[in-house]
């Protein structure tokens, strides 16, 4: 069970003079649910964007299974301005950055913090689009419907997925007309349709009430078992995080300050300090 799925090694992400993520190293093993937590502005979403290829890191390496997704080291004019940990600076000499679509094709799917659905398309189309990536038809055969078998199979699979996730009753509705909770579900459904091995959830419970959060907890557990997934998520709802994660990483100001099981994190003084602040006069 301990096979590593995702490895983030010494990743630093620097925007001009701002070091959003500083020398972050973490790993996610197969079948785990791992959470990344931290106060606002700690660099969690930036870390996600580096993993999914939206940003190329300033230094460090991201590995998915045996594939190097992105790798970089501060070279050229960036070397002088580099503000991250200096000792990891020359560790990687390969420059590589896959585009997000290739990373998705490898089996990494993600959702977004502020929902990014295809708003004017129906629920069914939203999920069906994820199937396009793996369809073999070129544009001519797709235009002249020579791929009708594949198309039908994609449609059937999409329908099946919607049924499993309980979205089949709204399949013909336009995505932006759905209630908020359903939109979150749809985003997860869309990510699942890409047939991922690793699912990255960026604040899946944002804006949900306690009742909805409990439902979401069940939902995540269910899809993890049904689809044989590894889940890596950013979350602020501590009930959810503590209940479902196997391990937790804590980020603060771009740096990893703690890692461990939920119990260890709850009792970690540095984490408490990061969230509640340190008392100065003592």
């Amino acid at each position: 069970m301990d096979r590593q799925v995702l490895g983030v090694n010494d990743v630093t992400m620097q925007f001009g003079g701002v070091v959003a993520v500083n020398n972050l190293s973490l790993h996610v093993n197969e079948g785990e649910i791992v959470a990344l937590i931290g106060p606002n502005g700690a660099g969690k979403t930036t870390a996600f964007n580096v993993i999914t290829g939206v940003y190329a890191p300033s230094n460090g390496q991201v590995v998915f299974k045996d594939n190097v997704i992105s790798s970089n080291y501060p070279h050229g004019k960036f070397r002088k301005k580099y503000l991250g940990e200096q000792e990891t600076m020359d560790k990687y000499s390969v420059v590589k950055s896959m585009t997000p679509d290739k990373i998705t094709k490898l089996g990494v799917a993600r959702t977004f913090q502020n929902i990014r659905l295809f708003k004017n398309l129906t629920v069914f189309e939203n999920v069906l689009i994820a199937k396009h990536m793996r369809s073999k038809a070129n544009f001519l055969s797709a235009t002249f419907r020579l791929n009708y078998k594949e198309e039908k199979q994609n449609r059937d699979e999409t329908m099946e997925l919607l049924k499993i996730l309980g979205l089949d009753d709204v399949k013909d509705e336009v995505a932006h007309s759905l209630p908020y909770g359903k939109q979150r579900h749809l985003e997860i459904a869309r990510a699942l349709a890409t047939k991922p091995e690793l699912l990255l959830l960026d604040e899946p419970a944002a804006g949900m009430n306690p009742q909805e959060t409990v439902e979401l907890t069940q939902f995540i557990k269910k899809i993890k078992d049904d689809f044989n997934l590894t889940v890596f998520m950013i979350e602020h709802h501590m009930d959810l995080v503590m209940e479902i994660s196997d391990r937790i990483y804590v980020l603060d100001f771009g740096k990893l300050i703690a890692e461990g099981t939920p119990e260890e994190i709850q009792n970690n003084q540095r984490v408490i300090d990061a969230y509640l602040g340190v008392q100065q006069d003592e």
Binding site: T99, D101, L117, L121, M133, A137, A142
Partner: peptide, 29 residues
């Protein structure tokens, strides 16, 4: 029209709606 209604057409529409999400769905922009 045939193209627009095919899976390529859906990919075009996805890019129109949200290119970042489209790329995350594996569509080569």
């Amino acid at each position: 029209v045939l193209l627009i209604n095919s899976s390529y057409g859906r990919a075009f529409k996805a890019i129109r709606e949200d290119d970042i999400a489209a790329e995350a769905m594996g569509i080569n922009l």
